[in-house]
Design a protein around this nucleic acid. Structure first.
Length: 414
RNA sequence: GCGGGUGUAGCUCAGUUGGUUAGAGCGCCAGUUUGUGGUACUGGAUGUCGCCGGUUCAAAUCCGGUCACUCGCCCCA
C-alpha cells in the first residue's frame, strides 16, 4: 500500500494496546511504591556523553545503535537508549549524593537503532527501579524481590525463571578475565567467528554464546566464582541467603554476564521461553562503578529495567471501561437538551458517551457495541413531559423517568 | 550489519501446472423493523494482488530490485 507508514521500528498504541501498557505501568508503579520507590522522570534526551562515557571501550555501540544528533547549536545529543545512566546523572546533577538512599521508579520510551523483532522496537518502553546509595547485599536482594513482586502482580512470574550470577568486584573480574582469555586463546581457531572477535573486544560475552561448539569449549573453562575475592564471595552469599529466606527461587547461571566495567556483584534476569530470542523480561544488577564513570563520586547502586512491550505480550488483555449511559437524541431538536443533561450526569460522576451520528438504529447499534448499561433516549415527546426514556441494554426493558428524579432513579440502579 | 520466511478486501486468510470477470469468513452498509441494539434471514460494496522493473500472446502466480513485516544471528547500555 502506498499510504503513509509509521517509521520502521515504531508503532502506534491504539486504545487496546495502550490499556495493556498502562496496566503494566500502573501495576509496576504500585508494586514499587510498596518498597518505597517513588516515580520520577528524566528527559528523553541527554548530552551524548551521558551514554558514551560509561561505555568506554565499547562506545561504538553508542555510535551505531543510538539516535544521536546535533541540535541547532551544534550540541551532541542522544535519545536515551536506557534509563539507568540518566537516573545516575540526575542524582549527581541534583546534588542528591547528600540525600541517600534514593529509591526511584520510572517508566517511559527508550530508543535504540536496531533491527526490529517481536518485542524489540526502535522506540520501546521500559519500567525500571533504581536503588542508589546502599552497598548492602540486602539492596541487591530488595531489587530482586521488587522485580518478583511486580511480575507476580502482573501474573507473569510463573512464566519466567530467575537467573542469577555474580560478577564479583573489579579485582575478581580482572583476575577472571585474564584467566578466561588465557584458556580461550588455546582454542581460538576452534571458536565461532563471532566469538573469535569477542575474544578481542569483549571476552566475557563469549560465555553468553549461542554456538553449540563454543559451549563445548566453555565446559572446561575457568569459572568466575573461583576468582571471587573473599569480600565478593561474602556479598553474593548474603544475597542468596536473603532470597532463600524470602522463598524466592532462582537458578545459578554462571554464563549470565554483563559486558561493561561499571557492573559488579549481582547480575540477574527473569527469562521466559515464550518470546523467542527476546527472552529477557526483566533484568538488572549492581552498577557501583557507574557514577564514577559519569564523573561523580563512587556511588553504590543496584537496579533493574523491564520492557513494557514484552510484559504486555505475556499479560492479559485489559478490558476497556464501559459507559454507564449512552445518550441518544431521537431528533435534532432534542440534541441540545440531551447534551446538557449528559454534562450534568458526568458532574454527578457517571460515565456518559454521546451517540452523535446516524439514525436511531445506528445509534443503538453503536451503543450496544460500547456495552453501555443504559441508553438515555429523548425526543420532543419525552422532553415535552420533562421526561427521558431509559432503556436497560441488558434486558431490553425501557422506562420513562422524570428528569427531576433522574439522579435518584440512576442511584437505585447501582 | 548478515541470513531465512511472508506481503491478496478494514481484519484473518484461500487462489491449482502462468489463462479470460481475483474469492471465503469476520467486520462494514442497506433492508425485513418509517423513534430502538443484540439473534435470525435477505441483499450490497469491498481491492493499484506492497511498490518499481523484467520475461511472456498472457503475471496475484515466474525473475530482479526495493520497501515493510516476521524468525534467527550480531548487539543488548
Amino acid at each position: 500500500m502506498d499510504i503513509i507508514q509509521p517509521v520502521r521500528g515504531t508503532s502506534d498504541l491504539l486504545p487496546a494496546d495502550k490499556a495493556k501498557h498502562n496496566h503494566v505501568i500502573e501495576t509496576a508503579k504500585q508494586g514499587a511504591a510498596q518498597f518505597g520507590y517513588a516515580e520520577m522522570a528524566t528527559p528523553m534526551f541527554e548530552f551524548t556523553e551521558v551514554f558514551s562515557r560509561p561505555l568506554g571501550a565499547s562506545s561504538d555501540v553508542v555510535a551505531k545503535e543510538t539516535y544521536s544528533f546535533e541540535d541547532r547549536g551544534g550540541t551532541g545529543l542522544t535519545l536515551r537508549p536506557e534509563g539507568t545512566a540518566s537516573a545516575m546523572r540526575a542524582i549527581i546533577s541534583n546534588g542528591l549524593t547528600q540525600s541517600l538512599p534514593q529509591r526511584w521508579f520510572y517508566a517511559g520510551p527508550m530508543f535504540r537503532y536496531e533491527r526490529p523483532q517481536k518485542g524489540r522496537m526502535r522506540q520501546f518502553h521500559q519500567i525500571g527501579c533504581e536503588l542508589i546509595g546502599p552497598a548492602s547485599p540486602f539492596g541487591d536482594a530488595e531489587i530482586i524481590a521488587c522485580g518478583v513482586h511486580i511480575l507476580k502482580s502482573l501474573g507473569v512470574l510463573e512464566q519466567t525463571v530467575l537467573h542469577l550470577n555474580t560478577l564479583g568486584d573489579s579485582d575478581s573480574r580482572q583476575a577472571y578475565r585474564t584467566a578466561l582469555i588465557a584458556y580461550l586463546e588455546a582454542y581460538r581457531n576452534d571458536l565461532s567467528e563471532d566469538s573469535q572477535r569477542r575474544l578481542d573486544t569483549n571476552p566475557l560475552r563469549i560465555l553468553d554464546t549461542k554456538s553449540a561448539s563454543d559451549k563445548d569449549i566453555l565446559q572446561d573453562a575457568p569459572q568466575l566464582h573461583r576468582y571471587l575475592t573473599p569480600a565478593a564471595q561474602t556479598h553474593f552469599e548474603a544475597v542468596k541467603e536473603a532470597l532463600q529466606a524470602a522463598s524466592i527461587a532462582w537458578v545459578d547461571d554462571p554464563f549470565l554476564v554483563r559486558g561493561l566495567d561499571y557492573y559488579s556483584h549481582t547480575a540477574f534476569e527473569f527469562i521466559t521461553d515464550q518470546l523467542g530470542a527476546q527472552g529477557t523480561v526483566l533484568g538488572g544488577g549492581r552498577y557501583d562503578g557507574l557514577a564514577q564513570s559519569l564523573g561523580g563520586p563512587l556511588l553504590p547502586a543496584v537496579g533493574f529495567a523491564a520492557g513494557i512491550e514484552r510484559l504486555a505480550l505475556l499479560g492479559e488483555e485489559q478490558a476497556q471501561p464501559v459507559p454507564d449511559l449512552v445518550l441518544l437524541a431521537a431528533e435534532q431538536s432534542a440534541e441540545a437538551a440531551i447534551f446538557a443533561l449528559g454534562c450534568q450526569l458526568r458532574t454527578d460522576g457517571y460515565h456518559v458517551v454521546s451517540m452523535l451520528s446516524g439514525n436511531m438504529g445506528k445509534k443503538m447499534k453503536a451503543a450496544n457495541k460500547l456495552g453501555a448499561r443504559f441508553a438515555l433516549i429523548a425526543g420532543a415527546d419525552e422532553l415535552g413531559r420533562n421526561c427521558v426514556s431509559l432503556r436497560n441494554m441488558q434486558d431490553g426493558t425501557q422506562t420513562e423517568v422524570e428528569i427531576s428524579v433522574l439522579g435518584n432513579w440512576l442511584a437505585q440502579q447501582r
